[in-house]
Amino acid sequence: MPSELILKYMREEHLPHIWCPGCGHGILMRNVAQAIKNLGIDQEKVCLVSGIGCASRAAGYMDFQTMHTTHGRAIAYATGVKMARPDLEVIVIAGDGDCAAIGGNHLIHAARRNIGITVIVFNNDIYGMTGGQYSPTTPHGEFGTTAPYGNIDRPFDIAVLAAGAGASYVAKGTTYHAQQTIKLIENGIKHKGFSLIDCAGICPTYYGRKNKKGGAVEMMRYQRDNTITVEQAAKMTREEKEGKLILGKIAENDFPEFSDEYQKIIDRLKEGK
């Protein structure tokens, strides 16, 4: 018998999940469930949208209204859901390739519009489902099956990208710091407007193996020993921050929310103005 949290917020009959031993996605998915539980949101009112990739499989496991859509497009699908049904709490779970490569355009534009959806990125710096190709967040010099001589791309910082595009709530979590990450996800969901929580994942099977980072335990240890707060990061030079993970809120702004703004147009027309 699993815990009460899992029984209530996950589809027990579809567990255990397909993720590899030690994959951080299970921990991050539990964080999402815990955050929704803490907020006391009605499960029927949560619409969880995902794309394609390892992270996107979360939609099948979580017990909400779930839509497992096409690669990279979850945010665009979620935009339609939110506009048509502002009463729903719309959450997107996406991987780094899903949301920053093929779906990068949708990410920045949803952030710019500040539409009221929450994007939770399970960011493990690699394409896992297809077997370990480098992604837009794979650090420079690291290896993937399509970067056999080392990655010469420079990576995106998804959180900074989203904040720069106008997302009104942005935070960074890690797999190791579950408690803090749950709180950040809660704040993101509560926030009115476009929120993004970029969660540093761990992929021992592909990323860990390809880059000699050890197994799940070693990768978790690395997160424990190399995470700094937003406040600490603010006082450090770029060189000092090299290889560090950041934990905490990156941006929070009170920008007008898109579907609210649209409703104002509808109301104004109704009044004949």
Partner: peptide
């Protein structure tokens, strides 16, 4: 932002 997104949003809205 593009045609792909338009199609996705349409399906999202219809699904609900």
């Amino acid at each position: 932002e593009d045609e792909i997104a338009s199609m996705a949003a349409v399906i999202g809205a219809s699904a609900v």
